[in-house]
């Protein structure tokens, strides 16, 4: 599946091959990409309907609502991350591949982020406008979501790898990942709120960036370990 050459294939090439394959599959089935995006927009729409259209309230709750909606949309997209690979046997191919499993897992999460994280980041300003977010805050909103969704992709992949092949994996995945994702939600949403209030945002952004760096370096190994255990 990755490389069939006799010599040891490089880390980067194996990783890219996995990412390319997943991107191609996503292209063939655009529903998998669009559904979480619609979900994101819909949750963000439900909120004003539930609490009323008062401008003050929308401005106040906008960052929190958008972040919660993004978190839930990411969770929704994570469910199917390893399932089709598990069912058609390509996951086993990855396990026996000479390329380290951690690199291949990173390739999968890169593709996952490009197909479910990045679209959220791009769509977020449109939803932000409906919450009367000023244009000056959009940059911070997108930046927090950019860093946050990268971390969520990796964190969620650990959960998806642990629950692959289990019945009732959906509810279980949320139960495993949501408490771990709380720091991201706290820093993401509060930083956007601070930006809207004209406060300093550097602290929150540094935290999100540090978290992303930490998890990019650790999560691939956890995902690889989890995949091996799930396939025993």
């Amino acid at each position: 599946m990755t490389d069939n050459q006799p010599e040891m294939p490089g880390l980067g090439r194996g990783m890219m091959a996995v990412a390319k394959r997943d991107l191609f599959l996503a292209w063939k089935r655009p529903g998998d990409v669009l559904n979480p995006l619609f979900f994101f927009a819909m949750v963000a729409t439900l909120f004003p309907l539930a609490v009323g259209p008062s401008a003050e309230q929308l401005e106040f709750s906008g960052p929190g609502v958008l972040w919660v909606a993004a978190l839930l949309a990411m969770l929704l997209s994570l469910n199917s991350l390893f399932v089709s690979d598990f069912e058609d046997g390509s996951l086993e191919q990855m396990l026996v591949s000479p390329v380290p499993l951690a690199a291949l897992s990173l390739g999968k999460t890169i593709a996952h982020w490009l197909t479910s994280g990045l679209p959220l980041v791009i769509v977020a300003p449109i939803l932000g406008m409906t919450f009367r977010m000023p244009a000056s805050v959009m940059g911070v909103l997108m930046l927090t979501l950019l860093l946050g969704t990268i971390s969520l992709s990796l964190l969620g992949s650990i959960g998806a790898a642990l629950t692959v092949g289990l019945h009732r994996g959906t509810a279980l995945l949320s139960l495993l990942i949501l408490p771990l994702a709380m720091p991201l939600l706290i820093f993401g949403a509060r930083t956007v709120s601070l930006a809207a209030a004209g406060d300093v945002v550097a602290g929150g952004l540094y935290f999100l960036a540090a978290y992303a760096v930490l998890i990019v370096s650790l999560a691939p190994f956890a995902i690889a370990a989890a995949l091996r255990i799930s396939n025993e």
């Binding site: 650990i158 642990l162 495993l176 408490p179 771990l180 709380m182 720091p183 706290i186 820093f187 509060r190 602290g203 935290f207 978290y211 650790l218 956890a222 370990a225 989890a226 255990i229």
Partner: peptide, 19 residues
């Protein structure tokens, strides 16, 4: 694996809730 991932996150959670 989950317990270890959680253990890495517990201090981060405490810190972020304090903040």
């Amino acid at each position: 694996v989950l317990a270890l991932v959680g253990a890495v996150n517990v201090p981060i959670i405490h810190f972020s809730v304090e903040w």
